[in-house]
Write a protein that binds this DNA or RNA. Structure first.
Lengths: 338, 338
DNA sequence: TTGAAAGCGTTACCAT
DNA sequence: ATGGTAACGCTTTCAA
């Protein structure tokens, strides 16, 4: 292994000088800098991460806490992960995957063993048991999501309440007076997932304000689940004419089942989907969508983390404003049978 | 931070004894062991990862090299990732995410800076440019996939060639004489993705051996792509009666489009899908499936890595045998119009 | 069965 | 603008 001493010898300087050239923490004569950088390149020197962590108490690693549940929205999750990783690299940081199956002890281990400098936590619940644990750790933590009581932890998320409002308003403006929400799987609600609750709240409230009749129905990720969910919704009288789908996983099945039931989109039913950006494209009718910007959320989470590590900022809750991207899946409701 | 010296003091032993209690590398009297373990628990001691890495030249971290392409199969990828992470934890290892956008230099950085002990590489291509780089690194690497020339690197993957054969045989045994492959996106073929090639090979060869007429058609992940793909397939005369879908992303769209074209599954067309296990469930007709066992592949990759790190095994190529899980989407072909 | 002490490769403080 | 050197917290060899 090539060490800092090798580089120092090769460049004819002391190892501390090499260290300073690399960190930029003190001024170096152009000539020295050049020689050192040459040697670094020529020898293929890479500082030993462990040694560096030991001496500087900084690992340059971010711990990303990932849910392992079967009922999560996989594309959204992957969107976060890639966004976090690429953003972290911009700040010279690597990303370590931490799963939840070690429980709180896993978080303590990673933080207390100086394996990571900070923790990013995904899939946050309303009353998330990890919140108190995170407060007790010697490192900053940023939540992707919004628990009831974040205390002094930073949070980033889409403003799901506003997103729901946006969907309702869009349908209401088109003239829909009876709408329905196809929600996430019951399991997601049962564990009090933060975003699901906030979306449902926003949906219900906005509908009330608009004097729009609204029903909502969780939807399990199976063909039978989708059918049952649609049965429930279309049992309403008169039938809802607008659907808000907050469940990426069943979208395909749902659209296909609507067609199977002889309901055309958007002639008979309007559909707004909330989900990853790609959601729009794959269907016969391009969908009206409120994109879930996992990219921006991940990037923001990393940036907030970096500010906290630098000490240039402290905890903060940031809710990103939703956009509605019009497609051809929403239109005015069919004329009422008189 | 609580260090090994703190524990040693608290337990009334030397720090080397604490180290040995923790590593189990030499025998310790029961009494001493108890006292040390007590102190560890009471003080909440976690060994400093960097210090440990520095002293032992082992980081207990696995680098997982992840593709960032938009055209990968996300659920499959996530399956690997979770499988790798949970398997690694069984061996006391953490997983660091490495993306490809740093290029080969990223691999060198992670390996040469002693950030990870080994590399697991996903999304391997036929002539993968990373293979020579991996050979030059001071740490073992395991490929998920099978390049043309793996040299001395370990590989794990589903035997895609056998998987295709299995699909063809299943359809042939039911009596289908004309079949078609709905393949991955053209982009996947263009970059010479290992599994896509091997599947196509197996498909073509098996069909020839069975005297079955076969066409294959890559399928871009969009509604138009699916339509074009089906147009091409059903332009054959007589029309194919069996479809093998090796493209998880378009499955929903494809099934819905088949229905839209008035083709019933399995009465008019039989469908076999290759993909993650969940693939089966979400459709009106439970699909006949050849599962892609990301779980087993990930676990195997980790185990092979561990063996190599221990030095108890060397490079090896392991191709897992496919299973075919019968559903209700395959049946004998409709009687020929005479 | 245990302890002392020499590294491991950096960083950062104290000099000059 | 640069060099010397004491930490950093652990593992492991050597000694007892």
């Amino acid at each position: 292994m090539v060490s800092i001493a090798d580089v120092a010898r090769d460049a004819g300087v002391s190892s501390s000088t090499v260290s300073y050239v690399l960190s930029g923490k003190r001024s170096i004569s152009p000539e020295t800098r050049r020689r050192v950088e040459d040697s670094v390149r020529r020898l293929g020197y890479h500082p030993h991460a462990g040694a560096r962590a030991l001496a500087s108490s900084r690992t340059n690693v971010l711990g990303l806490v990932m849910p392992l549940r079967p009922d999560i929205d996989v594309p959204v999750l992957m969107g976060f992960v890639t966004s976090v990783v690429t953003s972290a690299r911009r700040y010279q940081h690597d990303v370590l995957l931490v799963t939840n199956d070690e429980g709180p002890e896993g978080l303590r281990r990673v933080a207390n063993s100086a394996t990571a400098d900070a923790l990013l936590v995904m899939d946050v619940e309303t009353a998330d048991p990890r919140v108190p644990v995170l407060h007790s750790l010697p490192c900053p933590a940023v939540l992707v999501g919004l628990p009831d009581d974040p205390g002094s932890l930073s949070c980033v998320d889409l403003d799901f309440s506003a997103a729901a409002r946006r969907c309702v308003e869009h349908l209401a403006e088109l003239g829909h007076e009876r709408i329905a929400l196809v929600g996430p799987s019951p399991a997601v609600y049962e564990r009090g997932t933060s975003f699901a609750d906030r979306f449902l709240d926003g949906f219900t409230t906005a509908a009330r304000q608009r004097n729009t009749h609204a029903v909502s129905s969780p939807c399990p990720p199976s063909y039978e689940g989708v059918c049952a969910c649609l049965d429930r919704i279309f049992a309403e009288r008169p039938e809802p004419t607008g659907l808000v789908v907050h469940n990426e996983a069943v979208l395909g099945t749902l659209l296909s089942e609507l067609r199977g039931r002889g309901r055309r989109v958007p002639e008979d039913v309007s559909v707004v989907a909330v989900g990853p950006g790609e959601t729009t494209a794959n269907w016969p009718v391009p969908l009206t969508t409120v994109p879930l910007p996992s990219d921006e959320i991940g990037r923001t989470a990393v940036e907030m983390t970096m500010r906290e590590l630098e000490g240039t900022a402290s905890a903060e809750v940031r809710l990103l404003s939703p956009r509605l991207v019009p497609g051809r899946s929403t239109a005015p409701p069919p004329p009422t049978v008189s």
